[in-house]
Simulated assay, not measured.
Amino acid sequence: MNRTLEWTVRVELSQDGGTTRAEAVLDTGTAKLTGQGIARCSPQDPDVPTIGDEVAASRAMHDVAGQLMSVADRAIG
Rank of each mutant, 00 (worst) to 15 (best):
M1A: 12
N2I: 07
R3C: 03
L5T: 12
E6H: 11
W7Y: 14
V9R: 08
V9S: 10
V9N: 08
V9A: 14
V9W: 02
R10S: 08
R10M: 02
R10A: 06
V11E: 02
E12Y: 01
E12T: 15
L13S: 11
S14W: 03
D16L: 02
G17V: 05
G17W: 03
G17L: 01
G18V: 01
T19E: 08
R21Y: 04
R21K: 11
R21A: 10
E23S: 13
E23M: 08
E23F: 02
A24E: 08
V25A: 03
L26C: 06
D27H: 11
T28P: 04
G29Y: 04
G29L: 07
G29E: 08
T30L: 10
A31D: 13
K32V: 07
K32P: 01
K32R: 15
K32L: 05
L33C: 04
L33M: 13
T34F: 01
G35W: 00
G35N: 09
G35C: 06
Q36T: 12
Q36S: 09
G37Y: 06
I38L: 14
A39N: 08
A39E: 06
A39G: 08
R40H: 09
S42C: 05
S42K: 10
P43S: 06
P43V: 02
Q44I: 12
Q44K: 13
D45N: 10
P46H: 07
P46Q: 12
P49N: 11
P49F: 10
P49V: 08
T50Q: 14
T50M: 12
T50A: 14
I51Y: 08
G52C: 02
G52I: 03
D53C: 07
E54I: 02
E54Q: 15
V55K: 11
A57I: 04
S58D: 12
R59H: 13
R59D: 09
A60Q: 02
M61N: 09
D63M: 04
V64Y: 00
A65M: 07
A65R: 06
A65P: 00
G66Q: 10
Q67L: 13
L68K: 04
L68Y: 05
L68F: 12
M69C: 09
M69H: 10
M69P: 00
M69A: 15
M69Q: 14
S70H: 11
V71E: 10
V71S: 03
V71P: 04
A72P: 00
D73F: 04
D73G: 04
R74S: 13
R74F: 10
R74T: 13
R74D: 14
A75G: 09
A75D: 13
A75K: 15
A75T: 10
I76V: 11
I76Y: 07
I76S: 05
G77A: 01
G77N: 02
